[in-house]
Computed example of a mutant assay.
Amino acid sequence: MSVLIAIPARYASTRYPGKPLVSLRGADGDKTLIQRSWEAAMAVAGVDRVVVATDDDRIRDHAQGFGAEVVMTSPACRNGTERCAEVAAQVSDHDIIVNLQGDAPLTPAWFVEDLVAGLRAHPEAAVATPVLRCDGAALNGFLEDRRAGRVGGTTAVFDARRHGLYFSKEVIPFTSRTYAEDEATPVFHHVGVYAYRPDALTAYGTWPTGPLEELEGLEQLRFLENGTPILCVEVEGRGRVFWELNNPADVPRIERVLQAGG
């Protein structure tokens, strides 16, 4: 099964305009968010092709400048999955398309490798996504964001078959307990990566935006609203810190990890 990683990147983000071109300082110097995301994709084993998918000339020129292959997509794309659907239509010779969102440079290679393996192991599944069990420190980070009125990471709940029941920017399930920093919690962080079979992407583009997707601003809910299960593949942190760049306040948080060589 051939695998393509597409990295959707748009300049006109509502919450953080120009986010793909934001500079992040790490142990290896300053690099943009999109370059660090591309480097994370290139580190994944068993991948046949990596492309940056954008509608913006500035992102295209910058990405080509550091050696990335770029696929131009329509400015009408409302989210990364729609952008990946356009990539799949243009580059149709891959069995699995991975959406590695351009705001997650801390994504370890094994998250994507385990995700692809999970989809391969479940031939009945059309879509899969990773989930990471929060320890107390990660859960406190989520709760701190919510108390401050920031839209932080996404949480997921799933059934006994590991089919996603719901994804939310609120912290679900509710728990009133206080957890030690290194203690396992019942809350799962949804890692913003997806693996699709081509038919699932084709179908996605034909469906209208549903009310839950509109309310949460979460593209994967369109699959659930149209009866397509999402396989949740649990991944292990292995001591690595994982966080997406959702808000300007996340920049120093991510830079601390990059400067530590994480």
Rank of each mutant, 00 (worst) to 15 (best):
G149K: 03
H122N: 07
D114Y: 11
T154K: 08
L115K: 05
A148M: 13
L132T: 01
V157E: 12
R161S: 13
T154M: 14
T129H: 14
G141E: 09
G164E: 14
R120C: 00
A156D: 12
R147T: 08
G164I: 13
P130S: 00
L115H: 04
V151C: 11
H122M: 07
A117M: 11
A117R: 10
H163M: 01
A117I: 02
G164F: 14
P130C: 02
A128K: 00
A126K: 10
R150C: 08
R162H: 15
L115P: 07
R150H: 13
T154A: 07
D114Q: 10
G118R: 00
E124Q: 06
G136V: 02
A126E: 13
G141K: 01
P123Y: 07
D159C: 06
F158T: 01
D135I: 01
R150P: 05
H122I: 07
T155P: 09
A126L: 15
L143E: 15
V127Q: 06
F158V: 00
L132I: 01
G164W: 13
A121P: 06
A128G: 04
R162I: 12
E144H: 09
V151F: 15
H163D: 09
L119Q: 05
R133Y: 06
E144R: 12
D159V: 04
A126D: 13
A138G: 13
A138H: 15
E113A: 03
V116S: 04
T154F: 15
A160E: 14
L119H: 02
P130W: 06
A156K: 07
H163P: 13
V151L: 12
L139Q: 01
L139F: 07
G149S: 03
L143K: 08
A125E: 09
L143F: 09
N140P: 15
R146D: 14
H122Q: 05
T154S: 10
L119G: 02
G118S: 03
R133P: 06
R161H: 15
R161E: 14
D114C: 04
